[in-house]
Design a protein around this nucleic acid. Structure first.
Lengths: 152, 152
DNA sequence: TCTTGACCTCAAGTGAGGTTGAGGTTGCAT
DNA sequence: ATGCAACCTCAACCTCACTTGAGGTCAAGA
């Protein structure tokens, strides 16, 4: 293994734009793993750059840490994921993305219907029905890969 | 003013599906105002149902409490907003919505380009460039009505 | 060898968006 | 007039996704 194949946490942070403290946090959450030097310092593989990229993209799409952990669980254990592995998991991400887009479009169309009447009334108006509430709660959109309805 | 024109906080909660504690919280944040009975209990107007609906819809679209307060500031002060007022503010909401949809579509298209190569590499890949980072941070999407770049 | 910057752990803090609980008051029906 | 559900305030607590700080260790260059 060449020296350039392993990265310190600082190097990984610098290459990904993710802070050192955030990387350590992700490790405690099981999103990423490091091996250790004799002096207990973390060392990462170059493949972890891609893993971290996936994490940040997925976050941008609204997935929670737990949702991302779930998605990453589909990657092979015991070997470094290859391009095909990443392509597969990216397609799952794409599906989640399409669903979120469709949901926003539905909301927009309902809003269009409401602009005319100016009703904007919960329960009465199609725009906001109580069944949607679970999805709307919390800080930002939450949905899990492969879970159409989102968390209960 | 008929008795049916005013609502207790419990009635407002029941009609909107928003919890009593959340309504009180919104009041402390200035999103909604109530007048008080002699015994210091809150009383709301029926128009506040619409106001609360707007708040929840805007939240669902990813606006922060502060962003919603800003949007609501464009409503007339001193009189109950009418249908035209709500239509105007709803159009602003629609614009924010369209922007968010467009952003997600751009992300999806970049992701499509990346599935082929399986690159998924921060900085190198078009999918995630550091300039986007400010927008991606925090819990869920943040954007302010009429603010293209989002909060600084 | 020494220095210095990068690293380590663990605990506490942050901010958004609320909820929960204690202890007390109001207001409507009977 | 009385009972009791619904209201009040205020402080503390919660989750999420991190950051910050204290106190200490490691590793590489001069």
């Amino acid at each position: 293994m060449r020296a350039t194949d392993v990265l310190t946490i600082g190097q990984l942070a610098e290459r990904t734009g993710v802070s050192v403290s955030a990387i350590r946090f992700y490790e405690t959450k099981g999103l990423i793993t490091a091996f250790r030097t004799q002096g207990d310092q973390r060392r990462f593989l170059r493949a972890d750059i891609r893993r971290l990229s996936f994490i940040r993209i997925a976050q941008h799409l609204g997935l929670s840490i737990d949702g991302i952990a779930e998605a990453l669980a589909s990657l092979p254990h015991g070997r470094t994921p290859n391009a095909a592995d990443w392509a597969k998991i990216s397609r799952a991400l794409r599906a989640a993305l399409n669903e979120r887009i469709a949901e926003l479009e539905r909301t927009r169309d309902k809003l269009d219907g409401c602009i005319g009447c100016g009703c904007l009334s919960l329960k009465k108006c199609a725009l906001y029905n109580p069944g949607d509430r679970a999805r709307a709660l919390g800080a930002g959109p939450r949905f899990v890969l492969g879970d159409k309805a989102g968390p209960v």
